[in-house]
Design a protein around this nucleic acid. Structure first.
Lengths: 110, 110
DNA sequence: TTAATATATCAATAATTCATGATGTATGGA
DNA sequence: TCCATACATCATGAATTATTGATATATTAA
């Protein structure tokens, strides 16, 4: 992870449709979603959705596999973990006490 | 946190100088940094830095307090925790086993 | 092979974002 | 009060990004 990869990823997340797509895929977990399902859920035209999915693919935020006529998309969780790690590297000046309440707030609830 | 706030925050992080600023402030912790110090460390002109700091302020990623002639900036860690929480809401389809390795990767090392 | 379905690509316009020079404002010191 | 320091704002042109209609490609079914 470097600044270029990170800014590209954040740019991909900085557009409402794409952020919605990413959150849907995060919630879908390993099941993922077909491109058509995503477009239908979010009420976005086919070519617009395709362009947005490509932006997210290029940013390394999502992955895809063909499935018959459709293409199934997944959130790339390790990539997201990398991104968060890069952003928060050496956080809080290395002070654990300062950092702890932050970590508790971030922790996943599932 | 909603999609508008989140996309605004990600847009703020999608530009190299601003991402560098945020990471510097994360590392600075509660000490923060003066605007001038930030510009000097990153070799960015005064008005460009001021504009970029304003974008980050408006995005809710950083805070500031006046200190004599200078202005001291800080990363807003609770806001960042909110943002990450919004992005990862109901992650992994609620499946703890699927989620656990992700959490371990994200965990702060300090 | 022909048609239908699912998705991707292309070209073009509209909108947004960026860095910069110039200038304005706030604070502290002489 | 006058000046220097520290930072913010404004206006502008250049570059990037987003959406869309039209079209192309890949897969499956008839």
């Amino acid at each position: 992870m470097d600044t270029l990869h990170a800014t590209t990823a954040f740019a991909a997340l900085s557009q409402p449709t794409r952020l919605d797509v990413f959150r849907l895929l995060v919630q879908a977990g390993k099941t993922g979603l077909l491109a058509g399902e995503i477009g239908e859920k979010l009420d976005v035209r086919q070519n617009t959705m395709s362009a947005n999915l490509l932006v997210m693919l290029n940013a390394g935020l999502i992955r895809k596999t063909r499935e018959g006529r459709g293409i199934r998309y997944f959130a790339d969780m390790p990539a997201m973990a990398d991104l968060i790690g890069f952003m928060l590297k050496d956080c809080c000046g290395g002070n654990v006490d300062e950092c702890k309440p932050f970590l508790e707030q971030v922790a996943c609830k599932c």
